[in-house]
Design a binder for these strands. Sequence first.
DNA 1: GTCTATAGCGAGATAGAC
DNA 2: GTCTATCTCGCTATAGAC
Lengths: 223, 223
Amino acid sequence: MGKAKATRGDRAGAATTAEKIRAAAEELFCLRGFEAVSVADVAERAGVNKALVFYHFESKAHLFDLVLARYYDAHTAALAGAFADEGALAERLHRVVDAYLDFMADNRRYAALVQQQLTEPGTHARIRRHLEPLLRFLEQALAGATPPKGPLAGRQFFVTFSGMVTHYFTYAPLLGALWGGDPMSRAALDERRAHVHWLVDAILARLADERPAKARPARARTR
Amino acid sequence: MGKAKATRGDRAGAATTAEKIRAAAEELFCLRGFEAVSVADVAERAGVNKALVFYHFESKAHLFDLVLARYYDAHTAALAGAFADEGALAERLHRVVDAYLDFMADNRRYAALVQQQLTEPGTHARIRRHLEPLLRFLEQALAGATPPKGPLAGRQFFVTFSGMVTHYFTYAPLLGALWGGDPMSRAALDERRAHVHWLVDAILARLADERPAKARPARARTR
DNA sequence: GTCTATAGCGAGATAGAC
DNA sequence: GTCTATCTCGCTATAGAC
């Protein structure tokens, strides 16, 4: 699982063989998924011999695991920062949405990769470990605005928000043809961003309307 | 592509060989996707010889195409009925959401199948033909409530609604572990249904609030 | 660490008897 | 229409020289 030596960053010129392989694998896996990429493809892309892939990484599966772990970590890190406890709830959620959209736009095949993982039981444990902190983040952020159980609980909004964002990217290749225009263009991404922001506001407004009526008696816990 | 004779329904006892194969393929493809299912698996499940699969269907890909087409058709049919022009907009949308959720609950791996297709360019044309009428349905239904362009256009809500629904099912295997309790249980599905209904209402309420205000000066193009 | 050569397997698909 | 036997190919992974 990676020689201990691979501590160097990924400067362009001085890439070690292992790093070239990792980079090539990342590119290809994110482009075509796991099954559709062969070790020979990775080696060719990296400009190294096929056998070296097995020397530096134990197997194709290990290599894929490594790529996936990097993505999961990057994803969590990107969102964790955005959840920072500053500003009103709406503002925080907008930040999170922005971070999510930006991450997806920068790693366009990531959504597809994760979706693909979902179809393979056996990888569920890892994805769960990846998603759990994100779910907790959102539940905590929403704690003051949503009830702890039922159809308006934070976990429902977790599915809703992540669906709204990721769906756009998994469907992007189709949307281009259906809509006309590139859904990955700056303008299109900004439009999607505005849409999701609008939805966040609509949801918060409706929650605020309902809360006093619903959980009325005694003091409402403002946060 | 299927002998012309295969007009019989799928009564249990009198299943023809081709039908047994088709049924087995449908089950397995929806359970594990395309790559993870071998022709030998299908034959075994159907209780027939492997070579017969190639006799009755030209190839594994053809067989898969057939299964997929059936699903797409069933999906479109299920939603088309729900879009019927009766009742207020909110009521119609609730009907569509219900039909969508029911279809997904009855065909639990369908969402994963479609997602998987999205990762394989070359199948895009077909999915597009499948999605196009659904998009047009929704755009038409929303025509009076949303602007024709921009972040609140119908097409944005198309991605949003389908994401909210399908995401629940693609993530279901994980949600069980994350939440505790089976996300496919009657109670859990009803909770999700209530959540999406609530969202539909929140969105319509907000749209109604904004429309007069937004395009205010001179005559607002009420459309 | 890097290469060539090849083992070994499982897959889709076909040949041809019945 | 159904079967057995087999072909062919691409893939992961390894052996072993350098």
